[in-house]
Design a binder for these strands. Structure first.
Lengths: 248, 248
DNA sequence: GGTTTCAATATGTATATACATAATCGCCAT
DNA sequence: ATGGCGATTATGTATATACATATTGAAACC
């Protein structure tokens, strides 16, 4: 078998114009250059900027709106939306909401908070290649009096330096991040495991009882943002994800 | 322009035209009226049928193509795609592929096959309201010599009557269904549990060892099609799902 | 017979244009 | 002030048109 010629699609050439506009704008948003709430140039401005017709610009912006990255308002313009919670994609959202949906009082206790230079393991979890500062957090989420989930999180401080100044006593790191960092990609790993002593102790369950473990890595515009591991006692939790093949 | 040829603006929906075209076609595909491989009318035919411009039709068809329901080929037309495996959405596909990706030989053994009128429990699992015939299957998937996953499946024979004539000795029910029934919606429930004696026995693990359980319900155009439960030994399996907020 | 060439065809992308619709601003009259 | 009202503005949808591009089927050629 011979290798395929490197028919090399380099960054910009072969893209159609409306796709180029689309990815330009998306990049601006995901990189944070255009923060949530920022007004995107009007169609007629982009028309001038890209030297194309309004229909072409409109197609790109409509697509971004359908994707949920921006919001369009007549007479006012188009705006970068607040970062959408992952809930829309996988029903794996704010634990507070899960707990309150059960009709139980929610509480979150921060167990640990350490700022450090990333260890090799940290970098593996986050998907970082170079060393840098990270924040390691451990929190316990309660439903009523019972522990509901243990959260172990790493935050890449190079990507989210503000996190280094936050104590996370009043707010859980999940909601904090969702409200600040737009995400471009997330990966979930879901598995079952037997509770080790640390986990059993924190969750107040028997050692070696089955647990559901959900790990999530999140990127924003190619940069790793956070790695989080949730450990749920098996009996307390079922993940539900509902899909349609695609949207129309 | 003359010629009214109103293809009936029924009900008086406030849908835009291209959205109406879009949902008309989607309905035809999901209901099975247009089977996989079926050629969708050419743009110029739809243009005549809906009495609108090609751009409008093109917008609708492009959107369906982007969503993956249809495939467009220049000079040939647009075709209903083979039902896409759920893999595209949640990496939870054919177990054969998972096993072979590990470099291990795959084998599937059918343990049980029972045709019966749905019990109350069957109906609860499938989401059926009225009684009707169902097919209950139990299969064991092997990776090499080791059991890899236990599959317990219910198929709604009212929705897929052909399944009643299939023995499922040569082919696993998953791939069989994916190749035949287009799905419009799927729901996953994922949890951890301790193996009971039956499961421990089938999977050849210790009783009360942690297992990952994945249950999936699938609908096609509002009709429940199948409910399946996969039980994996914890150490053999991690689910991975990768998302982007939306596509553009 | 087998290969090359070419024209026909359906889709892909872009343009200019038109009118509808919703939201907002500012003016005016009370 | 303030409440109403029209003008303005940006987006929403649709049209007709043009040309590019990929693919196919058949004619032309060696």
């Amino acid at each position: 078998m011979s290798l395929v010629e490197t028919d090399d699609v380099d960054g910009g050439e072969s893209l159609s114009l409306h796709q180029r506009i689309l990815s330009d704008i998306r990049e601006k948003i995901l990189s944070g250059a255009w923060a949530p709430g920022h007004r995107i140039p009007f169609e007629h401005e982009l028309t001038a900027q890209y030297n194309c017709s309004r229909m072409t610009v409109n197609k790109a912006l409509s697509q971004l709106a359908k994707g949920g990255l921006i919001e369009r308002r007549r007479r006012s313009g188009s705006f970068v939306r607040q970062p959408q919670s992952q809930a829309a994609v996988l029903e794996l959202h704010d634990i507070r909401i899960e707990v309150e949906a059960l009709g139980l009082p929610y509480r979150c206790e921060r167990l640990e908070r350490v700022k450090r230079r990333s260890s090799a393991e940290d970098r593996a979890l986050l998907g970082l290649s170079a060393p840098g500062p990270v924040l390691a957090l451990e929190s316990l989420h309660f439903a009523g009096e019972r522990p509901f989930a243990l959260e172990q999180r790493l935050i890449n401080l190079s990507a989210v330096p503000e996190a280094g100044d936050e104590e996370f006593l009043e707010i859980a790191p999940g909601p904090w991040l969702i409200g600040r960092v737009p995400w471009s990609e997330a990966e979930h790993r879901i598995r079952a495991m037997a509770a080790d002593d640390t986990i059993a102790d924190a969750l107040d369950i028997e050692a070696s009882a089955p647990c559901l473990v959900v790990e999530r890595r999140t990127w924003s515009a190619e940069h790793p943002v956070t790695h989080v591991r949730f450990v749920y006692p098996a009996e307390s939790h079922t993940l539900v994800a509902r899909f349609t093949p695609s949207q129309g």
